[in-house]
């Protein structure tokens, strides 16, 4: 999933300053699962904004909405009347959400309520970790299903660097050396010898360094 976290309340308040009718729009997908921008978090933010406005004596009207997927125009379209009625919209979605909203409602003022962090998974309750770098050219079949692009601090492709000590990365003792994990995993499978094969230099042209990436499927186009 795409993992995000809410911006500090002070930053959100700064963005909506001078606007009276605020519409908060959550997203029912990734950011609901990572407790950053679902209906529940929209409610908590709305309540926080109202309380803060009451303290300052500001006249603030907060409306709450959550759509199933804020990254798709069809879902965002259902908000049209509410967006038109609002002075400003705070999107609690990943960075795709506000941009979909801007596209749909070019006259509306849309601001982000979240900081989008990474593609990740749940390590345990309340903990998420980066797991995929979205490099556009997957090599998991070569690395025991564990991604060194996302999970090695240097994105090394052929074994650990000299900073791997006791299974930990030199960057932080909280980071596991992913190459140790890859080795351990393949060793359990009896396939550690796979690591003797050199992974050729990776084609990074798919990794987004050449501008925004687009996928086109002619069979799906209307």
């Amino acid at each position: 999933m795409i993992v995000a976290e809410q911006k500090p309340l002070a930053e959100i308040r700064q963005m909506i300053k001078g606007h009276r009718k605020v519409l908060l729009v959550g997203c029912g997908s990734c950011v609901t699962v990572c407790f950053a921008g679902g209906a529940k978090e929209v409610g908590i933010l709305a309540s926080s904004l109202r309380l803060a406005a009451q303290i300052d004596g500001d006249d603030l009207e907060v409306t709450e909405e959550t759509v199933l997927r804020q990254c798709e125009p069809e879902f965002v379209e259902t908000l049209r009347r509410k967006v038109e009625d609002a002075d400003i919209v705070v999107s609690l979605a990943c960075g795709v959400g506000p941009q979909t909203m801007v596209e749909a409602f070019p006259n509306a003022r849309i601001v982000p309520g979240l900081n989008t962090k990474f593609f990740g998974r749940v390590l345990g309750p309340g903990v998420w970790t980066e797991t995929c770098a979205g490099c556009g050219n997957c090599i998991l079949h070569l690395t025991g299903g564990i991604c060194p692009v996302a999970r090695c601090s240097k994105s090394l492709l052929n074994g650990p660097c000299g900073g791997s000590v006791g299974g930990k990365c030199e960057v932080s003792p909280d980071i596991k050396c992913v190459w140790q994990e890859i080795y351990d995993h393949l060793a359990v499978q009896g396939k550690a010898e796979n690591l003797a094969e050199i992974i050729e230099e990776k084609d990074w042209s798919t990794a987004g360094h050449g501008g925004p990436r687009t996928i086109t499927r002619k069979d799906l186009q209307i």
């Binding site: 500090p8 309340l9 002070a10 908590i44 926080s48 309380l51 803060a52 303290i55």
Partner: peptide, 8 residues
């Protein structure tokens, strides 16, 4: 923590 952030 939220209440501190809000100012309550």
């Amino acid at each position: 923590g939220i209440l501190d952030e809000i100012g309550v």
